[in-house]
Design a protein around this nucleic acid. Sequence first.
DNA 1: TATGAATGAGGTTTCATTCAT
DNA 2: TATGAATGAAACCTCATTCAT
Lengths: 192, 192, 192, 192
Amino acid sequence: MASERREHLVRLAAELFAQKGFQATTVRNIADEAGILSGSLYHHFDSKESIVDEILSGFFDEIMASYRAAIDRGQGPRETIAALVRAAFDTLEPHRAAITVMQNDWSYLRGMERFAYLTKAEDEIEEMWAGTIRQGQRQGLFRADIDATLTYRMVRDTIWMAVRWYRPGSGLDPKTLAEHYLKVMFDGINIH
Amino acid sequence: MASERREHLVRLAAELFAQKGFQATTVRNIADEAGILSGSLYHHFDSKESIVDEILSGFFDEIMASYRAAIDRGQGPRETIAALVRAAFDTLEPHRAAITVMQNDWSYLRGMERFAYLTKAEDEIEEMWAGTIRQGQRQGLFRADIDATLTYRMVRDTIWMAVRWYRPGSGLDPKTLAEHYLKVMFDGINIH
Amino acid sequence: MASERREHLVRLAAELFAQKGFQATTVRNIADEAGILSGSLYHHFDSKESIVDEILSGFFDEIMASYRAAIDRGQGPRETIAALVRAAFDTLEPHRAAITVMQNDWSYLRGMERFAYLTKAEDEIEEMWAGTIRQGQRQGLFRADIDATLTYRMVRDTIWMAVRWYRPGSGLDPKTLAEHYLKVMFDGINIH
Amino acid sequence: MASERREHLVRLAAELFAQKGFQATTVRNIADEAGILSGSLYHHFDSKESIVDEILSGFFDEIMASYRAAIDRGQGPRETIAALVRAAFDTLEPHRAAITVMQNDWSYLRGMERFAYLTKAEDEIEEMWAGTIRQGQRQGLFRADIDATLTYRMVRDTIWMAVRWYRPGSGLDPKTLAEHYLKVMFDGINIH
DNA sequence: TATGAATGAGGTTTCATTCAT
DNA sequence: TATGAATGAAACCTCATTCAT
């Protein structure tokens, strides 16, 4: 089913989508990169959309699994939040292309029936994070005067947007980024 | 130069670009919205690009001016950062469409010679913010163990991405958002 | 009727048509050159075609008159041919733009009902020249083994095509060109 | 590279360009003639310009080769000039369409960066012809009181412009034309 | 699996022309 | 006479997709 050839093509496509955007990448671009003719791609996929679908669903499946594992570990809210942040940053390298597409072509994909599952997954994720934050508030660990959902969105956007400037092998690795973000998120930049 | 008719058309276009994305919005969409034929738009603009250019440069001019004013006020780093955050959030409503385009079509626009000025402006802005943070670190106001640039990017992404979910008239106004973000940014979510 | 303003506009248009070709010159180009808006041209002319018509008919009127005068002078064939050649070259400077348009846009204009008069004038002109050559042949002045019509066309094309490379003020003036062409035409390049 | 289908399309296009002019011929005209949709042409060519490029460069390659062969045969100037004239007339039938385009759309094509090679080729050709004429003058075969370059241009224009009126199968064939032109060129129309 | 040719819909842009002011 | 806005037709070109071979 998922032949090697096919997986290779998906990876090529993901790279192009990430570089130029989904809409701006033509089926011919992908075929050129693979050294075949554009029509030949249709032996592997039934549409351009189905390629991006494969890219995104692969990423979402993995991140959801990681998040669930972090939640299910049943640690305290502080540890759980840290685990979620770290899980997210851990995908930055292996799924860089998928995340880039998700961020850059979000407005296009959001409008499509086919990708409704993305919105659904996002809602579920939001509930995991915000729920954990609220739990921390109830337990007196986190300040009561912040909005859990708002705070989640702050963190989420800040993490995923990192793909727009993060370059592997530039001194900063995702683990370092995660710790930096946790520091600021938990304690702020002020010296008290 | 900027006739009323023209400004009206720019506003219509901005709204459509924000809703559907720059690429997915056709010149015909804009013309339809304006009740004219697509060719007639070319009486006012010489290309679709020049429309988005007008939208974005208008926004950038304003935000740069606000930022410079905040810096020039010569307050302490803490107050200056707060002023920058508030200045950014203050554009959220009047420039919602422009910000949305900037965020959503970033990957497309980035690749174009014509919009090189955006990158240049971003660099200048980064220097304003990061410089202020570093000043605060030197004055012993901000923690020395955070990275100024990284921190700026966190804040920047979190602010602009708000356009993807912020809806005017939903209880939350930009001022409230700004204060919330300042709280988290300065002091973190932990209770100490 | 032929106000100065109008004549000025015709001259501007002629220059542009000569430089870029009739089709490639837009009504806007002409208006820009005149410092008015394209729509305003329509107070002076009822179409782009009527402008080029004015340019070409002006030229044809003059060349026909010159040719007829040369013929009517009733000199011998040799002198008449020389007069025709000189008459043609004499238009090279004052009507350079018109001749250029006639040569360059010939294929386009030929196809238009409106410019049928050009073909008619050409036929009449061909008859003048070829008739004179034939007269010279009958009088034993010109060789009998050349084709009068063919010879006329040689000369005609050679004269008008000069506009493609002739530049006023480059040392060569039309009078010199005429004499050169007469030399070759009458006696050939061989030394006998 | 040059598939049969492609060559067929080029021939169709050349015919249309010759009939109506390059600018006046639409891509749809060509496609209609070929019985396909206009967009389908872009499977074979990347632009309308690239079609005319193929037409013209094919012609120029051949004429340059013929000219070089004539020069390289190393005969006397009189024979070489005759060979050049005959070589040119020999292209009149097989390359009628290309020559027509070259003549009629010269002013349009000249302005384009892409066709700069045409001007370059013309310069090289001018040097071949004018050089041969000058050689004949030095050897006392051709009159010293004529200008070599001017004479070349006379001949050149007269030859290529023949496509505007020459019709195959009208009694006159290119060989006859060549001999006629040689007669006039070498010895003039006078009887001495 | 791949090619080569084509489709069909639609995209941006151009441009001569019109007309109320 | 000129402006400013618009029309309407058509131009070149793009591109996801199909399909016989």
